[in-house]
Design a binder for these strands. Structure first.
Lengths: 214, 214
DNA sequence: ATTCATGGTGAGTAATCACTCACCATGAAT
DNA sequence: ATTCATGGTGAGTGATTACTCACCATGAAT
């Protein structure tokens, strides 16, 4: 009888996945689930199932659920080359380009839809990595813009406003846009480019028509 | 032996609380907990403990945890007389007063700090009452403002902008302010009034100094 | 051909979850 | 004095939670 090959209880033909691949797969799957359901709203069971592995394996790569969450935030917190482009525009005092750059980094086709929800959830739920996440994804550009506005006021190009509040106002417009679309699911009625252009024009030029008879 | 009064196992001197009072107390306590920890992050045990009653009593007033949450959102969704004041300012075409009214309703001393977090949590967690909450607390005023801006453009008082995007931009500034303070705990560096005035001035007048030599 | 580090899992664990039930306590009306 | 609607609770329930452990599977190196 031992000549008969006992069929494996797990007749998987596929070769085993490497540790790195599995880890990355788990992070992606979990990121999506955490973004939709939050930390407490997501179970390790569901993550494992969605990633197509056993729960036990998940805990081999990440000692706790918290560790997995932290790993996700760390990965998502890495920002792109936006900073350099913004600093370049700042050096050239190209207002429109600078504001358009900042806005279209968030409002563009293919922008990661899970990122904003993760950012919000981690802040609301008070995760330990939330501050770092906020710092990397937001504060950096906020400070950059506030400083730029400050310099432009000194030069006389901008009206005398509070640079900090002005920077917050502009980011508010953008963040709010993501909020409406990523969280409340509102449809866009203009293209990404037109939306950005309109926001930038509004912020730079204001709402009230400037009378020329003054 | 039966002449000896058996001491009650619950020697509470206080008279019993009425159903309405208890219900209100539970709603307030739970609202604060849901606002800080979200729906899934708050246990019925903790709510009962914080309200100083047994878990069993909680379930006598609210059949499920969901029902309690819904009751909270229903109560918090009732808006004040802001609408009438805004419509009055709109009739008089008093731009500054209208925008200041809208902004200072959210940015003022004593504004309910749990409301914004509840609004965000319910939207992120996808609660069934989230849409109603959003409609009552936000959409109403958003539509009001968009219509007003539309009329002011026709009259020639405002520049030709997209009224919907303009309304969203303004609310974005305000919502973002609450986000920074209620969720991220950033301190304010101006008074509520000055902050509102600065935001309104920025939005109406824009950032760029208008050159008089044109 | 055997070894063995590593990928992978089924079947648990104690703790906690939302929720229930049988029962006690109170006080105003009879 | 007794009744009885209502306020209130201790001690549960089965289901689900994050996490563990003993063990199997694979394949490249010896």
């Amino acid at each position: 009888m031992n000549s008969i090959q006992k069929p494996s209880p797990h007749p998987q033909r596929k070769s085993r996945t490497s540790a790195n691949q599995r880890q990355a797969s788990l992070i992606n799957t979990a990121a999506s689930l955490f973004a939709t359901n939050g930390f407490t709203g997501t179970t390790t069971k569901r993550i494992a199932k969605a990633a197509g592995v056993s729960e036990a394996l998940l805990f081999k790569y990440f000692p706790t659920k918290q560790a997995l969450y932290t790993a996700i935030l760390e990965e998502k917190a890495q920002y792109s080359g936006l900073r350099e482009a913004v600093e370049d525009a700042a050096k050239k005092q190209d207002d429109e380009r600078l504001f358009t750059l900042l806005a279209s980094y968030r409002i563009r086709r293919g922008a990661d839809p899970t990122l904003f929800r993760l950012l919000l959830f981690s802040a609301l739920e008070g995760h330990e990595m939330s501050d770092m996440f906020f710092q990397r994804q937001y504060q950096v550009f906020h400070d950059l813009l506030a400083n730029y506005i400050h310099r432009r006021i000194e030069v006389g190009a901008f009206r005398t406003v509070d640079p900090l509040l002005a920077a917050r106002a502009f980011f508010g417009i953008i963040v709010h846009h993501r909020l409406l679309h990523d969280v409340y699911g509102l449809p866009m009625h203009l293209t990404h480019e037109d939306t950005v252009a309109e926001y930038v024009s509004l912020f730079l030029g204001g709402l009230v028509r400037q009378s020329s008879d003054a």
